[in-house]
Computed example of a mutant assay.
Amino acid sequence: MNKVRIGIVGIGNMGKGHLNYLSKDEVKGGELTAIVDIDPARLDWVREHHGDRYVLFDNLNDFFASKAFDAVLICTPHYDHPTVAIQAFEHGYHVLVEKPAGVYTKQVREMNEAAARSGKAFGIMYNQRTNPLYQKLRDLITSGELGQVRRTNWIITNWYRSQSYYDSGGWRATWAGEGGGVLLNQDPHQLDLWQWTIDMMPQRVRAFCHFGKYRNIEVEDDVTAYVEYANGATGLFVTTTGEAPGTNRYEVTGDNGKIVVEDGKLTFWRLRTPEPEFNATWKGGFGSPEVWKCEIPVAKSEGAQHKGITQNFVDYVLKGTPLLAPGEEGIKGLTLSNAMHLSAWTDNWVDLPINEDLYYEKLQERIKNSTHKKEMQELKHMDVSGTH
């Protein structure tokens, strides 16, 4: 194989984004050959802008049966990510899935198992892993430069969304349509980076989620979560879509100082003497270790982003290049958001791994009363009866 033929599933906003760079042949060794979408208008848009360059399908059965591609890039609504991925694996295709991996870990675990059975390539569109800022942060931590991690603290409140944004689609910010709010729509990248940069998942979570605090929505739009790690470290994650101006500041403290990521810069407040050593030897009463403010050089770019993940995925299939974002790791960030929801719903601590059956049960209760589900039921009733 000297190239990977790619089929896109879903040609909404994200699908069009991937179509844009693939149509320009900007992924070496990758070739877009097919697209599927159940919305005729979207397929018409492809024809209008790209002619007959791609094979188009209006249903998944014909799409998967066609063998017109080697790998699929899944850009469907959240709930469908695992379902479509499992179908693709069962038909013998490689899979690259958009974030989040899914809505609940029980379903995502089934997707991971299907990937393992298939032996096919599996990646997830965690494009922020290409960002030099977070790559350098991970390097400083995993190499031991920071010493043992003691505390993580991420304030990510610059996700401002107005009511008109939520009103733009009946599926937005509903349990039935999206399966969550700021944690599942805006924060999947940060939740992934939170665990990826320190190479460590927490042991337990206590979260406080406010549902429809700032907007007329049914899902969470304000979250404060506290976590504890096996090594004794603690962490804090604060996020919202209802504040302006917002903040994006990520701090990681270790035995050798503190690293801060903010405003596109990475600053290492480096202790000349590691804190444990200073504490064991200092006899002067008041005092603290000498600290150096080090501006860590980082490439002035946001990395290759979506195109970079797709290129890495293609390189993995063709050359065996290690995956930057293995699909199996999508469950990690989702576990964090599921744990935060479950902690808020039960008003209690949640141990990791979470009780997946309990989470699913609680989620179904919310889906049952979701405004989006009721709207879909009404539309279905109108289509069938023809009386409205």
Rank of each mutant, 00 (worst) to 15 (best):
K374Y: 08
D62A: 13
R366A: 07
V103M: 13
S168Q: 14
I156H: 15
G181F: 01
E243W: 14
C75Y: 02
L133R: 12
N185V: 15
G123K: 04
H306K: 09
S162Q: 15
E98N: 08
G308D: 01
R129P: 13
L60W: 10
D39W: 12
I124N: 07
E361I: 03
H94K: 02
L56E: 11
L133Q: 11
A176M: 11
P82K: 03
H306N: 08
G254D: 00
Q163S: 08
K373H: 11
N279L: 15
V298H: 09
K3V: 00
S143Q: 14
T142Y: 05
I217M: 11
Q128K: 13
T76Q: 03
G10Y: 06
I367R: 02
M340K: 08
E262K: 15
G123M: 04
F57P: 02
I217W: 12
T83A: 11
E295H: 09
M382G: 04
W154V: 12
K136D: 00
A339D: 05
Y229V: 03
Y165F: 15
S164E: 13
I309E: 01
K24F: 05
F122D: 05
F211G: 03
R366G: 08
L43Q: 12
R204Q: 08
R117S: 02
K319W: 00
Y229F: 15
W292G: 15
V103Y: 03
L73C: 10
L342G: 06
E251K: 13
A121V: 00
K307R: 14
I309C: 05
H50E: 02
Q107D: 15
G102N: 05
I35D: 00
K3A: 00
S162T: 15
R172Y: 11
E329N: 14
L193H: 04
G29D: 00
V298L: 10
H210T: 11
S288K: 15
I354R: 06
K332L: 14
A344Y: 06
P353F: 10
E328C: 04
L352P: 14
N131P: 13
V384C: 04
